[in-house]
């Protein structure tokens, strides 16, 4: 079965992102495929390279990155939601003339069309809402 996940919550603010991560791990362990994980709304903060939780707490952005590297996952952060909230890649930082960019390696910024495409191409779309 091919899944795509829609993650709507920021790490730490809401449990949704952590639930999505556990689901992804469990699905992969069962041999299912994950077509895409799409981060929307406050979920864009999952793609921050600058999140610095205390060492005894879960560093979800880092775990997403590691999972993506291990399984070649497509982690897409909604570009419109991200730039509004200050999650930028190098291109967007240049475009908006910002002094820095903070999109974590393993994530990419792209449009909402990637969510629609994921829903069309996958057997199931699972939303982790906040």
């Amino acid at each position: 079965m091919i899944f795509s996940l829609l993650v709507y919550g920021a790490p730490h603010s809401h449990q949704a992102a952590e639930s999505a991560y556990r689901f992804a791990v469990s699905a992969l362990n069962q041999g299912h495929g994950i077509h895409r994980i799409f981060f929307y709304g406050d979920g864009v903060h999952n793609g921050s390279a600058l999140a610095s939780p205390p060492q005894d707490e879960c560093d979800l952005p880092a775990r997403w990155q590691a999972l993506a590297e291990q399984h070649e996952l497509d982690l897409v952060v909604c570009i419109a939601a991200a730039v509004r909230r200050g999650v930028l890649d190098a291109n967007e930082a240049l475009r908006y003339e910002k002094p820095a960019h903070n999109l974590r390696a393993g994530f990419e910024l792209s449009g909402l069309g990637q969510l629609a495409e994921a829903a069309i191409q996958s057997d199931r779309l699972i939303t982790f809402g906040a």
């Binding site: 899944f3 689901f23 362990n29």
Partner: peptide, 8 residues
């Protein structure tokens, strides 16, 4: 969690 995936 595995049961959640199976339900999906």
């Amino acid at each position: 969690d595995a049961g959640f995936v199976e339900l999906c």
